[in-house]
Design a protein around this nucleic acid. Structure first.
Length: 427
DNA sequence: CTTCCACGGGAACACTGGGGTG
DNA sequence: CACCCCAGTGTTCCCGTGGAAG
């Protein structure tokens, strides 16, 4: 322990047991909380046998030394796509070892690895190549990867999770990867793309589209019954015996089923419910905890999103809030022009750079995507076209989070000047 | 039919953080 | 060391366009 106050002895007025003892003596609800986290891959995936079989039946070609067809996997979030692919991949590598047919599965999340360069660099690094984070020309990285890949006879399965995120930034990599086999003498590559977006192939180069989608597998959402099974299976490991009220898993499943059958959400809900119960010193998780958890998850999400917004976006959001404050009675939607004038004033006040209106349009659209505001383009006839913006998160809450940012602090009491409104109200 | 305001696509640019070469 | 190359990102500039009120 580090002594912080110059040798002066800290007064021991906290309970004689120390601050943690109290908590340790609390009723424990969890046995193993890890199994409720999204990162955990269980050994058995209920209600996904069919999909596992499909993937396996395609990948089995690898064990015979052939190149498996490329696969595209579709399905909404939390339908077990990633879990299934990882599971089958693990099995494939294991079986490959015992059959002396080396198979490697390289898993990548394209939300993180979202550019050509980074994708190729990650692949090369998986093969033990040193590639700098930046600096090289892309084709050099490609060559590196190709050469080290081709050194021995093997089949490499490249899994690209959230592949739709990658496609938006140009599909050159996918084109190159899908043709790489023509350049290889020993090794073989096959691709698995995982997408949340059913329509993402529309933006794809037709050549890539046909090669990538040789096989397509669709993961339907779970229904409430199936989610319930999943929860039961994990809850058995996660919770102490009889710590769960019978209705709890049912309720979690029902909530998640409403949201397009997202199992990940259901597990989150169950875990947070447990945590809330634990904190409120209840020995069992009850229905009310689930309802509390439902709210908490949503609030946490928003707070986190708003907090991590770039300053410029925060300014835009604050403009919306400020104008909303002034329009309270009318409850009108806000237009881009209004936001932009308020935004400019605030930038001046705190000495921030002023971005162009074009850029602000984009920032507003981003806020819309994040679900913080709602922006709809409307045509107001003679008075032109604009976005009708309204807030879709609690006002006070959001404001507090924004004010945590020291750069925005001086704007706490800022009042936007709105010529059209102010004048008509004054006279 | 005109008019108006901002939407939103696309090109161009600036800047960053990292190469490699002479 | 100076210098130029490269990918990636955020931004500005330019501009054609939508669509209902007037």
């Amino acid at each position: 322990m580090i002594e912080l106050n110059n040798g002066k002895k800290a007064p021991e007025k906290n309970s004689s047991n120390g601050i943690f003892e109290d908590y340790l003596n609390n009723v424990v609800i969890f046995d193993n909380k890890e199994v409720l986290r999204p990162t955990y891959t269980p050994d058995y995936l209920p209600h996904r046998d069919e999909q596992i079989q499909s993937v396996a039946s395609i990948l089995v070609a690898a064990l015979r030394g052939d190149t498996p067809s490329n696969i595209l996997i579709y399905g909404k979030t939390g339908t077990g796509k990633t879990a299934v692919v990882k599971y089958v991949g693990k099995e494939l590598e294991k079986t490959g070892e015992s059959h002396e047919m080396p198979c490697y599965v390289i898993y990548m999340n394209c939300e993180v690895v979202d550019t050509q360069y980074r994708l190729l660099a990650t692949l090369a690094r998986h093969l033990g190549k040193e590639v700098p984070m930046t600096g090289w020309p892309t084709d050099q990285v490609y060559e590196e990867f190709k050469n080290s890949l081709d050194k021995e006879k093997r089949v490499v399965i490249v899994v690209m999770d959230e592949i739709d995120k990658l496609v938006r930034k140009g599909d050159d990599v996918l084109y190159n990867l899908s043709r790489i086999n023509a350049d290889l003498k020993n090794a073989r590559v096959s691709l698995i793309g995982i997408s949340n977006d059913l329509k993402f192939t529309e933006f794809l180069d037709p050549r890539v589209k046909s090669s990538l989608g040789e096989e397509e597998i669709i993961f339907p959402p779970y229904d409430a019954e199936q989610i319930h099974d999943i929860l039961e299976q994990r809850a058995k490991i996660a919770f102490k015996q009889s710590a769960l009220d019978e209705t709890v898993t049912r309720l979690c499943a029902a909530f998640a089923a409403q949201e397009h059958g997202d199992a990940r959400r259901a597990l989150d809900l169950l875990r947070v419910s447990g945590e809330i119960a634990e904190r409120s010193k209840s020995s069992i998780v009850e229905e009310r905890h689930v309802r509390l958890a439902q709210d908490k998850i949503e609030v946490d999400r928003i707070v986190e999103v708003v907090r991590t917004l770039p300053t410029q976006s925060k300014l835009v959001l604050l403009s919306v809030l400020k104008i909303k404050g002034r329009l309270e009675k009318t409850g009108d939607n806000i237009s881009t022009g209004e936001v932009y004038t308020a935004y400019k004033q605030m930038c001046n006040d705190i000495g921030a750079d002023i971005l162009t209106q074009r850029r602000i349009t984009d920032l507003i659209s981003e806020l819309d995507m994040l679900g913080i505001v709602n922006a709809m383009v409307v045509s107001k006839g003679r008075y032109g076209r604009t976005k009708a913006i309204s807030l879709s998160v609690p006002e006070d809450n959001t404001k507090n989070v924004l004010m945590e940012d020291y750069r925005l602090k001086p704007l706490e009491d800022f009042i936007p000047i709105m010529p059209n409104v102010a004048q008509s109200q004054l006279f």
